[in-house]
C-alpha cells in the first residue's frame, strides 16, 4: 500500500472532515443493487475469457481499460 502524500494544513483547517472506507457491508450491497436497478445504472464492461486473467490484470496496471472488465469462464 502506498503512503498518503503530504498536504498543506490549510486544506483541512476549518472543521473539514476526512474519512476512510474499509470494505463494505451486506447492507451496502443490497442497497446499491436496488438503487442500480431503479436508476438504472449503466455500466461499461469489457469481457475476456477466464484464461486471459493475467493479460487483463496487466491492462489494468497499465490503465488500458476504460472502466470495468469481466472474465467469462
Amino acid at each position: 500500500m502506498s503512503r498518503i502524500p503530504e498536504f498543506d494544513y490549510s486544506l483541512i483547517y476549518g472543521e473539514r472532515t476526512m474519512r476512510s472506507v474499509a470494505n463494505t457491508t451486506r447492507r451496502d450491497a443490497a442497497e446499491l443493487l436496488r438503487v442500480a436497478a431503479e436508476i438504472p445504472i449503466r455500466t461499461v464492461v469489457e469481457t475476456f475469457p477466464l484464461e486471459e486473467a493475467n493479460t487483463v490484470l496487466r491492462m489494468m496496471k497499465e490503465s488500458a481499460l476504460q472502466a470495468g472488465a469481466a472474465l467469462i469462464p
Binding site: 463494505t24 436497478a37 455500466t43 470495468g68
Partner: peptide, 20 residues
C-alpha cells in the same frame, strides 16, 4: 436488467463507491 458481465462492476467498485 443487467447481464452477468454488466452487473460485475456494481459488486466491488460500485458498492465501495456507494458506501463512500
Amino acid at each position: 436488467l443487467f447481464s452477468d458481465a454488466h452487473a460485475t462492476p456494481l459488486l466491488c467498485g460500485g458498492v465501495i463507491g456507494y458506501r463512500a
